[in-house]
Every structure is written in structure tokens, then in C-alpha cells.
Write a protein that binds this DNA or RNA. Sequence first.
DNA 1: AATGAATGAGCGTTCATTCAT
DNA 2: TATGAATGAACGCTCATTCAT
Lengths: 227, 227, 227, 227
Amino acid sequence: MRKLKPQGRDNSNSRRGQQAVADILNAARDVLVEEGYPRLTMRNIAKRVGITVGNLSYYYANKRDLLHDLLEAVIQGYVEDFERIIKDPKNSPAERLEEFVRFIMGDLGTKETTNFFPALWALANHDEVAAAEMSFVYQIERDALAEIIGSMRPDLRKKDRDILALFVSASMEGHTMFIGYGREKRAVASEIINVAVSSFVSLIESIDARAIRGLKPVAKSARKLAG
Amino acid sequence: MRKLKPQGRDNSNSRRGQQAVADILNAARDVLVEEGYPRLTMRNIAKRVGITVGNLSYYYANKRDLLHDLLEAVIQGYVEDFERIIKDPKNSPAERLEEFVRFIMGDLGTKETTNFFPALWALANHDEVAAAEMSFVYQIERDALAEIIGSMRPDLRKKDRDILALFVSASMEGHTMFIGYGREKRAVASEIINVAVSSFVSLIESIDARAIRGLKPVAKSARKLAG
Amino acid sequence: MRKLKPQGRDNSNSRRGQQAVADILNAARDVLVEEGYPRLTMRNIAKRVGITVGNLSYYYANKRDLLHDLLEAVIQGYVEDFERIIKDPKNSPAERLEEFVRFIMGDLGTKETTNFFPALWALANHDEVAAAEMSFVYQIERDALAEIIGSMRPDLRKKDRDILALFVSASMEGHTMFIGYGREKRAVASEIINVAVSSFVSLIESIDARAIRGLKPVAKSARKLAG
Amino acid sequence: MRKLKPQGRDNSNSRRGQQAVADILNAARDVLVEEGYPRLTMRNIAKRVGITVGNLSYYYANKRDLLHDLLEAVIQGYVEDFERIIKDPKNSPAERLEEFVRFIMGDLGTKETTNFFPALWALANHDEVAAAEMSFVYQIERDALAEIIGSMRPDLRKKDRDILALFVSASMEGHTMFIGYGREKRAVASEIINVAVSSFVSLIESIDARAIRGLKPVAKSARKLAG
DNA sequence: AATGAATGAGCGTTCATTCAT
DNA sequence: TATGAATGAACGCTCATTCAT
């Protein structure tokens, strides 16, 4: 996970204030990552920054705003990563897909990412601010994937490319809690990523658009072949 | 998501006690699902059951134990589902894989599953009880998958089958927060599940064991084929 | 000021709870009377009762409700006083008026009344609950006065009787902060009450209905008479 | 209510400082009038002036001093009004009394007066500064009234004139919360003021000094007359 | 004169937990 | 079994005040 880039609030003009806001968001992220959302309290954040609650609420008058800026800052970091990868010229679209998958699934092994995203998902289920931020970052991720997929399969319709992007994105994210930092299957992360790359590249290269709409039974035909 | 089957604790001898514990766990699950973990308070649970906090603490002296039983009960429901599917005789292994995938990814569209599992993942990051329960249920899921994979690809080593099972399992779970109940991409759940079935069946049927270990570059060879 | 008669809430069934609520309201009234509204905090009330804040909010989940019950209980005491006086058979209506005035203006010398009502008036300007309670108690007071006035002056229309009742009531209340408990002019309270009785009785007995509507200039005619 | 005339403090030498203090006191009065004393915070005042809390505390190092100046400034406005009315030459003393009553009870219908004075009365019960200011303004009011009463009734002793002045003053003030700005009985303010003028003029003109000392029973004689 | 920053206390409220009945 | 009552800590937030710049 990357450094936070706070958007600022009104304190943006003062150097001390900017630094304080950055410190607060960093501390908040650390609390969220290390102790979990239920412990993300104003007091815990203030303690980690080394200021008083009173002073914390000078910068953030309420927790809602702080959470909003925290999620925004964290997510902005990923968005910038995606943009960099997309702009990176690569020989083949498949290579770009591979790099993208390796980047996402590699990053998911960092402590911050491993802990941040499940918290975001849970939060998004009951918090509109979190839901909006989550929606935003994954839309960017899918846009990047859809662009790569489009260059690999110009024959596919936009809607199909979007579905494939969604499938690849969601599948990658699902590995967070298994091969993430300190997680049970962290040891096989490398193999899992290999499988992922292989599976996704193969899927994109060879899927028949009819299969997306369920017009091309897979398992049953496989049965016949096997029989 | 299925009815909860509380394991009981010491109240297992009394019929009334069993019912009360079941009511409590159902209420607790509802609170968790509908309001989120931070709102899963003893008071909220008691209110939903229609008893007092004092009486709730007769059944559960502390929140830890209640949470433990709640997770256990919810998870036991899934374990029973997996067992039923595995025992179900099917013509082909691929069909069984398809059914398994369709079951998991279909269930993930229910309100309870959509909300319960992200909460469990987030919780597991900072709570050992949750981590243990999560570990347990996914081990069962992977065991089921590994068994099916083994019947599809007897040539693969156990370790490779386990990795493939992990990949399929994690990939499926990752769709919870995207095509789950009320989620942004719920509308394309059907297409996504088609893609998943197609992708997983194809992956299992055709993956080369060397690819798992990274000995068979995918994207680069793909480039050559494409070129 | 009289003993508080709390209406109860849900705790009305339990003897301990009833006593606790009564203790709370008494303590709250004492805080309001002795320290003023800005110091009427949950902590101050709890301290005076000898319980913890946590326990206080077991009886009153929020301050709003507590304030409502406090005002209601205090005001109910006065309402009962008014009713008793009205029912009290007296030889002449004028005697009843005198008794009423002496009761109100006598009570206004008690510490509780002297401090409670200005607080209520100030509160009513920005708090709807207080405004409603204030409106209620003075309506009762005016009803009592209007009834007496009606028996003294059956020739007056209801609207005129109501206006006279309002004038007498408001005039009496205005003395609270001057001849009330410990106030600057407390020493002449007795003389002031004599003047009040004399003035009100004389007013009711001799006012011309036209004067109420401004059709009978007072000062100017007085000038002529004086001239 | 009239414009505030701040007495200055040490900032009196600087024109900008004078203006700033005036702005602060005006803002403070507005907060007190519109939001009530509990909301009369340094922050609210500063916000209304458009300065920071830090700067506010340059002009007023503590809230006590600010409150003192606020009350003083507001009250000085009334004192000047009283003086103007007294100096105003009128044909008859009764006319002067009528004008005084109409002025006071007319002013009491302005938003500022309606809200300011109940706040002052409540405050005076627990704040010596407020008590002193309140004492001061009403002494002026009573002095004015006593002077008029003296010219109407040269036969009365000073003590009796003072008591009558107190009665008239207190009675008038008592109408604030009933016929004041936006209050329940505002609609009959005009009739109430007519009654007040009629009642006060009649009282002053005809009261027997013995009645003040309770030597001339009013209601009982009335009974006889009625009987 | 004016700001931004900071403190420490206190606010109303909620929490898990305990316990006598 | 079940309730009502109670605690003490923590929650998000606001407050008057201080102070370096």
C-alpha cells in the first residue's frame, strides 16, 4: 500500500496543518489496518498521532469526515497505481494483463492491503461513504482491465469485456483473505498467482461470447468428451 | 443462508434453553447481517430476541462466547451444504464442479451470505475465534473442491489439486461484494456465474502442472502465438 | 413548590424504579433551581442522586426525556394547587381572587419557584418541550382566573375575561424576579402583594369593557379630570 | 431593542478596535437572542462576527468579561430610552405614565427584548454580573416610574411611591413571555396594553396608602358590597 | 490584530458486564 | 429463567482557554 495523499480540507494552505492532516490519516489507516474498524476511534487515532482528542477534532470536526478522507486518500493511491500500469507500454496485451494481475495480487500481500480491503468491504455494506469509495476504486480497476481485454479480444462486445473485467477483478480480490499478509495460505501465494495469470489469460484469449450468456454448456459438453 | 443449528453449550439438556439459544443466535445473525458488526451489541441482540440484557447474559456470560457460537452455527450450515453436494452422485466430475460453483455463487446472492462473509473476513483479521471459524469453513469448501478436481485430473499431485481448489474457492468468494445481494453488479450475476463455470472447468481440465510452478510462461508464449 | 409527582415511564411497575425516577426528578429540579439550566447536566443530576451516569441513563436514555418529565412533574404540582383553590368554596368571588393572588404571589417567594420559572421562560424561548409545558401550566392558571373573573363580572364577554385573566396572571408572574426568594425587593413582598390584590380586585370590579378595546382613553380623560 | 453602545474597555483608543468590539457585542446579542444562553459560546460568537476564536480572545480574554460588556451594552440602550421619555414634556403626569407603559410594553414585543430579558432573569439567578446589570436597569426604570407617580400623587410617601413603581414595573415585565415576539398571546398584545394602562393609571390615581400596608381589606369589603 | 494550533475538561450517550432478586 | 438495576469505561463531540507566530 502506498503513501497517503490527503486532499486537504481547508487546512490545505498551512504547512503545519497539511502535515497534521497527513499524520492523522496515516495514523487512522494504521489503526484500521492493525486494530480493525471497531477500534478506529477518535481517541485511538489521536493517541497514535500524539495529539489530544480536542485537537484531532480541530482538524476533523466529526468522524464521518475523517473516515471519508481516509478512504479517499487510501483509494487515491491505488488509482494512481492503476494509471501508471496502464500507461506502461508493453509488447503484448497479454503481457499487460499478466503484469496487472501480478501487481494486484502482489500488492494484496502487503499488510495494509490485506487488512484494509476486507474492512472496506464490510464497511461498504452499511456505510454509504465507504460504498461510494469502494465503487470508485473498483470501477477504475475494471476500466483498466477492460481496456486490456479489449486489446486482446477486439471481437468482444463492450458489455462482454466489462463482464470479463468484473470476473477477473472480483476473482483477484477474493484471494486477499487467503494469500494476504500473514494469512493461512500466504505460503502458496506465488503458485496461486501463477494459476491466476494462466487462468485469466487463457480465459480472455479463448472464451466464446456465447458462453457468457449460457448458450454454450461447458460441463455437459465436457462430459461427452470425457465419455 | 440456512437455519442456524446451535451446538448448545451446557444448555443442551433443556429444550427451552435450546430454543432460547437458537433464538439468540438467529437474532445475532440478523443484527450482524442487517446492521453490521459494530452494531452487534448485547443490547441489540437482546432487543431483537425480546429479552433483557440481563437474561441474555444468562445464556451468554460474555460477548466473546456468543460471537463464537454465532460464527460456529452459521458456518455449520454451510458445511452441511457442502457435504450434501459432494454426496450427490453426478454423471461427470465436471458437472459436479459446475454444480458446486453454481451453488456457492448462487448462495452468495442471498442477503445473509452477502453481508455475513465480508464481516467474517474483516473480523478474522483481528479476532482469533473468527479466524478459526473462517479457516474451518473454507477448508471444508476446498476439500470438496479438491475431491472433485481430483476426479477430473487424477494426474495432478495433491499439492497442485489443493492449490487449484484454493484458487477456485478464493475466486468465487471474491464475487460476494460485487454480485451479492443488492450489490452494484448484481444484475450481471448470471453472466458472471457462467463465466466462472466456464473458466474454472476449463482451467481444471487443461492446466499444465508446470504452469502452477511458473515453469510455463503464459503471457509471453501467448504473445508469440498472437504474433 | 411542591413535591414532584413523576408520571413514571415504563418503570412505573417497579417500586424501586419508581423511587429512583422520583429521586432523579427531585435531584434534577434541585440542580436546575440551585445551579441553573446550563449546569443541569446528566453528570450533575447523577451525582446528586448518588448514582452513576450509566445508571442514570438506564432510567432516562436521553436528556430530552428527562427534561420533559422534570418540567411535567413540576408543573403538575402547580396544576393540582390551582384545582384545589378553585374547588375551595369561598363567600365571595373577590375573596377567591384575593386568595388566588396571595397563593401565587406567596408561592413565588419559595426558592424553587423563584428559580424554576425564569429558567422555564428562558428555556421555552428555544425549546419546544419547555414551551409546551409552560403554555400548559399558564393556561390552567388563566382558566382558574377567568372562572373567578366570570363570577365577579358576568357582564363581560368571554374574550374580555380571558384578556383580564392574562393580564392578572402575567402581572403576577412578573414579580418573581423582584420579590422572589432572596431577590432584591423580597423585603417589600408583603406590601407588593397588598397592592396587587387591591389593584386586581379593583380592576376586575370596575373596568369598562370599552377600555380593553381602547375606546375609552384613560390618561387623557384623567388629565381632564385632574385639570 | 436598540443598537449596542459598547463602553469600550482598553480598546477605546483605537477606532478599529471600537468597531470590532461593537461587532462582537452585536453578534453575541444575536446569538443570545436567537439561540439562547446555552449556545452563547465563544465559537458561536466568533463565527457570527466572522473572526476566529483566537482573535475573539484578543478582544475578550474570557467569556465572563464578554458577557459583562454584552449585558452592560444592551442595558445601556434601555437606560437611554428611559431618560428620553422622562425628559419628554407632557401635559399631564398620567399621560407620561401611559406613554411609559406603552413604550415598555411595546418594546417588549420586539424579538430582542422578548428573548433577552428572560435570559437575563434566568442568568441573574446564578450569575452576579447578570444580577448587578439587571438590578441596575430596573432601578432606572423604577426611578422613572417613581418620578411620574410622585407627580401624580404628591401625597404619597417616597416608600409607597417606590412600591407602586415596583409593582407597575414588575407587572409590565411579566408580560414579556406572553405577549412578546412570537409568543402565544401576541395577538392580544394591544388589548393587554390597554388594560395595563387603564389599570396602572387607575391604581396610581386612586390607591389608598393604607391599602399598601394591608390596613384596608379590599376583597372583604367587596364581598360586603356584593352582598 | 489576527490566525492556526493545541489543551484538558466536560458534555450526552452507549457499552459489556455484574448481580440481587 | 428472567428481570431490573447498577457500574465503570469508553464513545464522538464541544467547550473555554492559551499561545506561538
